[in-house]
């Protein structure tokens, strides 16, 4: 993290985050949650965002991308595209309605696929 952050970089991070949030919202609308089923839209946004973050960090590591671009894409776009709060609350809501398997699958699949996608993208890109 750089000590000083140029105002245009900060603004770009915010706009990129907002665009990521809009993309996630569009995905969740395109794949609406059916009661008791996995929230696929959010799962895809989370796994996809984790893969892009790994890719960008890998590229930045071999100086193919600058620090500012990394911050805008990773903290901004990927941070906005992915979400932790919806993932936690929807998993608990599944469990609270007795859908324990769906809840466990939502937690496990998001985490496992997200981690593998991020790691593979990072290792291929760096």
């Amino acid at each position: 993290m750089t000590a000083s952050l140029a105002p245009w970089v900060a603004a770009a991070v915010l706009v990129a985050g907002a665009l990521g949030a809009v993309a996630r919202f569009a995905l969740s609308r395109a794949l609406p949650v059916r009661p008791g089923r996995l929230p696929w839209g959010i799962l895809i946004a989370n796994v996809g965002g984790s893969a892009v973050a790994g890719l960008v960090i890998g590229l930045a590591e071999r100086a193919a991308l600058g620090d500012d671009v990394r911050l805008i894409l990773v903290t901004g776009f990927c941070g906005g595209l992915t979400t932790f709060s919806t993932w936690s609350v929807e998993s608990i809501e599944l469990a609270a309605t007795g859908r324990w398997r769906a809840a466990a699958l939502n937690v496990g699949a998001t985490f496992a696929f997200g981690l593998v996608a991020c790691a593979v993208a990072y290792l291929l890109a760096r």
Binding site: A18, A53, C78, G79, T82, T83, S85, W87
Partner: peptide, 12 residues
């Protein structure tokens, strides 16, 4: 809240 929280940063 969706953009305040992040899963990609956790994975990264």
């Amino acid at each position: 809240l969706g953009s305040f929280t992040t899963l990609s940063a956790v994975m990264a």
